[in-house]
Simulated assay, not measured.
Amino acid sequence: MPPSPLGDERTSRPPLLEIVVPAFNEERRLPGGLLQLCAKLARMPFPTAVIVVDNNSTDSTGEIVRTWPRGPVPVRLVECATPGKGAAVRAGLLDTRAPFVGFCDADMATDLNAIDVAFGLLLSGERVVVGSRAHAFSDVENRHSRVRELGAVGFRALARVLVRGVSDTQCGFKFFDGALVREAVAGLRTFGFAFDVELLARCVALGSTVLEIPVNWRDMPGSRFSPARHSAGILLELGRIWLRLRAAPSPGVSPRWEQPLDPVGSP
């Protein structure tokens, strides 16, 4: 079926919103996730686009994107050979050009209706809007083990030392002022699980605040995180972030980041 005139008109203009989807060996979940995301974005009354970052996959993830059918929402591929979700998100965000950008996980665990809320807040002047599963009005279906839940509580306590006032740094649903996040992510050096913490901290250092919004979130099978295998590495990442931000703050650092941080204190 040939593209509709509406599709041609949308794709002929630069996107107002670009969404990055990091993907590592996501051949099973990516097609359904892209269908959901493109269907959602196609209903928005302005041009949008999707960037899928293939993070050195060994399956058909890249081929799925390369052969994705043309439609009202362009989907393009960026390749990132550096391992780690943080590296993939960084590559994708640096490849954006839109005034407003975001990223979400390939499994679309966060209900995509939250895009409307996040985008509306960006239009109203917010610069960083993130989904929070810890928000009082969020609806969360969580099948994680008790051990993993306890680990998440500990991680959030440590993350709040670096990004004060943010209750959930790890929800894979974040939206930004494009110019701000491209500047912030250029200096990102954490490519593992804790990359979100450094990214948000850098946005704060550039003078932004972080606004959390409630989400409907469903735990999806296929998570690669293991408390036994990854906890020590995550603690090391958080320590490195803390030292890095203290040692070399950005020129636009806000007063909060000019003060010493207490690594064991609570916000």
Rank of each mutant, 00 (worst) to 15 (best):
D168T: 01
D168G: 01
T169F: 06
T169A: 15
Q170V: 07
Q170C: 06
C171G: 03
G172S: 15
G172T: 14
G172Y: 10
F173P: 04
F173A: 06
K174F: 05
K174L: 09
K174H: 14
F175G: 00
F176R: 01
D177T: 01
D177K: 02
D177Q: 05
D177L: 05
D177P: 09
D177F: 05
G178A: 11
G178F: 07
G178H: 09
A179Q: 11
A179I: 03
A179C: 06
A179M: 03
L180R: 05
L180Q: 02
L180T: 02
L180S: 04
V181R: 05
R182I: 08
R182A: 15
R182K: 12
R182W: 13
E183L: 11
E183R: 15
E183W: 04
E183C: 13
A184D: 13
A184H: 09
A184K: 06
A184F: 14
A184W: 08
V185T: 13
A186F: 11
G187T: 02
G187P: 11
R189G: 12
R189L: 08
T190E: 14
T190A: 07
F191K: 00
G192E: 05
G192K: 03
F193H: 05
F193G: 00
F193C: 01
A194M: 10
F195G: 00
D196H: 09
D196T: 11
D196N: 13
V197L: 10
E198H: 05
E198I: 01
L200C: 03
L200F: 14
R202N: 12
R202W: 14
C203V: 07
C203S: 06
C203I: 05
V204P: 00
V204L: 04
A205H: 12
L206P: 00
L206W: 12
G207Q: 10
T209K: 13
V210T: 02
L211M: 13
L211D: 02
L211C: 14
L211Y: 10
E212V: 04
E212D: 11
E212S: 12
E212T: 05
I213F: 09
I213V: 15
I213D: 09
P214A: 10
P214E: 10
P214L: 12
P214Y: 11
V215L: 09
V215E: 06
V215P: 04
